[in-house]
Design a protein around this nucleic acid. Structure first.
Lengths: 136, 136
DNA sequence: TCCTACGATGGACTTCGTCCAAGTCAAGAA
DNA sequence: TTCTTGACTTGGACGAAGTCCATCGTAGGA
């Protein structure tokens, strides 16, 4: 994740201990934490960090395209640091676990012209739902 | 929508004016209202209807499989009465408009075995994002 | 080392949704 | 038709998730 920190610094981000901790919490594959979970983990390292700062920092990371918002599980938004690799999500209906997956095929191409209603289609989000081995 | 009312009656639903109004508000294609919008439109016909009743009724319709929850636009859940025909959604990034669409192809089949992590995959939700003619 | 604009803080506020106790009423029984 | 009863509705309290804002603090350039 020092990669991320380096990129952020290159974009003129003022580096604060709070932002560093949030960025470090959001590290790894198959990470899909809620804002509250990010706050809890960040607070474990930096007890004074406030909820507002976590929301601000997450919002900035999303705006910079470094982190994706995923709204497919439960009520709260989840934050996916794996924004640099195109991928989709596989969600367990039992425990809510989320895995990053890479389907083959061309989902956008599968939408016929007459089904586009004149829209310019730019992207597609796919959520597979199923039951994980642990819940089966 | 009297179709829906008939089916609900057949399932032993006690028919009340509140439930009838909610079911009538949820009529048509490309309808994706929030609970609050359903409440507003229902209240236009039945001013005393309470928010709790709208939430209860929507929850029952979802549980019966007559209505789908769509969580792809904005914060609030939206309710899609077109549950009897398999379809996906096309969302305008500008105004938030949602259209029902029918892609060709086999999205579930496009997920390779080694990308399933042992899950039993049961369904797939696809959200196309783009810009509608009005916003372009 | 000093300045200052950018960032952090926490508490109030909004939105969306759920829960509950009490009152109401749809629809079957008589 | 009237009675009865349990399912349904109501409104207000509550809770979770997220936003806003005035004020304070500090990163990093001069």
């Amino acid at each position: 994740m020092s990669d991320l920190l380096r990129r952020l610094r290159g974009r003129g981000w003022r580096m604060t201990s709070q932002r560093r901790v949030v960025a470090e919490v959001l590290d790894g594959d198959h990470v899909h934490l809620t804002a509250d979970e990010v706050h809890q983990r960040a607070a474990a390292r930096l007890p004074e960090i406030s909820r507002a700062t976590v929301y601000n920092t997450l919002g900035e990371l999303v705006a910079l395209g470094e982190v994706l918002e995923v709204s497919t599980v439960g009520r709260a938004k989840r934050y996916d640091p794996n924004a640099r690799t195109l991928h989709q999500h596989l969600v367990c209906s039992g425990c809510g676990m989320v895995r990053d997956v890479h389907p083959v095929g061309d989902a956008i191409g599968d939408l016929p012209e007459e089904e586009r209603f004149g829209f310019t289609v730019g992207s597609v989000e796919i959520t597979y739902r199923g039951v994980c081995p642990g819940c089966a």
